[in-house]
Amino acid sequence: MTLRIAVQSKGRLFEETMELLKETGIKLNNTKRTLLVRANDFPVEVLFLRDDDIPQAVATGVTDVGIVGENEFVEKNEDAEVAKRLGFSKCRLSLAIPKDIDYKDVSWFNDKKIATSYPHILSTFLKDQNITAEIHEITGSVEISPSIGLSEAIFDIVSSGATLVSNRLKEVEVVMRSEALLIKNKNLEAEKSAILDDLIFRIDAVQTAYKKKYIMLNAHESKLQDIIDLLPGMNSPTVTQLASNGWCSVQSVIEEKRFWEIITKLKALGAEGILILPIEKMIL
């Protein structure tokens, strides 16, 4: 039994998905030229598709699961189920207008023409806001629409905002935030569900380790409780008696964002021989 996974065939989401699969121990060959690739050491095969085809492929059972941007999943509105939010390829879907226009609130969009590749999401938002506007659906280069007179505003993906700036546009309303999703067919067989559970277990182990560091240090017993209070770890730090009388080795996990704050406090408490190691996987 093999679990088929649909993956975007190119772009940033493709790159980040391939890196995630690699970190979970799934090795693929010839991904550049082959539509369907079988993993060497895990019961999955990867089907490479356009991002906007993945929700339908999963919903109809052409593929069992898929990794797709939340924006495409919501836009296509297919009958599939979110198995896990993956937390990468983050972006937002926003309304933007020419930078020189004075904007006060969403009512500005009444009776305006808006260009977008996401008409379903946009129409739902406008309806919720009681806004009546003309939606002009196009694919690609949405950001040039106002400058060529095709629309008065756009609704599109925004990451850094640099594309908007280069086209003399400004973001005025964030409609939704998006990230990569692992979606699944609602009628997945029991054996395939078991494989999916194993895959999610591996993904959890990889993602739990993100932005965390393993720390080892030596400390005198007189300072041990203060250091334990500073290093709670996942449950509690590991403490081992050293050969030197009155000294212990302490091991724990810290968040990378607090790294320098914690190191400074540890040194103030007399910690010595501080060693910081990257974490590849973490099983809770």
Rank of each mutant, 00 (worst) to 15 (best):
N110Y: 04
A194R: 12
N235S: 15
D52P: 01
A162L: 13
T238K: 11
M1S: 11
A268P: 00
M18N: 07
R177K: 14
S123M: 11
D41S: 07
D53M: 11
A59P: 03
V172L: 04
I135E: 06
L277T: 07
V65N: 04
E78F: 05
K213W: 06
V58W: 06
E255F: 08
L242T: 11
Q251D: 13
Q129D: 02
L224K: 12
T264F: 09
D156H: 07
K104D: 10
D51R: 07
I148S: 03
L196T: 07
L266N: 06
M234I: 15
L230A: 08
F259T: 11
I262F: 06
P55F: 06
K211F: 12
L13Y: 02
D53S: 13
E173W: 00
N77H: 08
D53W: 06
L182P: 07
I200S: 07
Q129F: 02
G87D: 02
A57Q: 00
Q251L: 14
T163R: 11
Q8I: 05
E261M: 13
L284M: 13
E45D: 13
D105G: 05
S222A: 12
I131G: 08
D100S: 09
S89G: 12
E15L: 12
R12H: 09
F155S: 08
Q129L: 01
P232Y: 04
E191Y: 03
N110R: 04
A180W: 02
S193L: 14
E23D: 11
G87S: 05
L188I: 11
T24S: 04
I195A: 02
G270Q: 01
R33E: 12
I283S: 14
I195W: 04
F125K: 07
E173C: 07
L230C: 05
L126G: 10
M216Q: 14
I154E: 03
E78A: 15
T17S: 10
M216G: 15
V106K: 14
D105P: 04
Y118H: 14
D41F: 01
S160A: 08
E189V: 07
L86P: 06
V62E: 14
G25D: 02
V37Y: 02
F73K: 05
L93D: 03
I195P: 05
S166M: 08
V172K: 04
P98K: 00
E15T: 10
T17V: 05
W247Q: 09
S252C: 10
V239E: 08
N130W: 01
D53T: 07
E261Q: 13
D105M: 05
V37G: 01
L13D: 00
R168G: 08
S244E: 15
R85E: 15
L242G: 06
P119T: 09
R177E: 15
D226M: 11
E75K: 00
K211C: 01
K211Q: 12
L35I: 00
K112C: 10
I215G: 10
I227C: 10
K213F: 09
F155I: 09
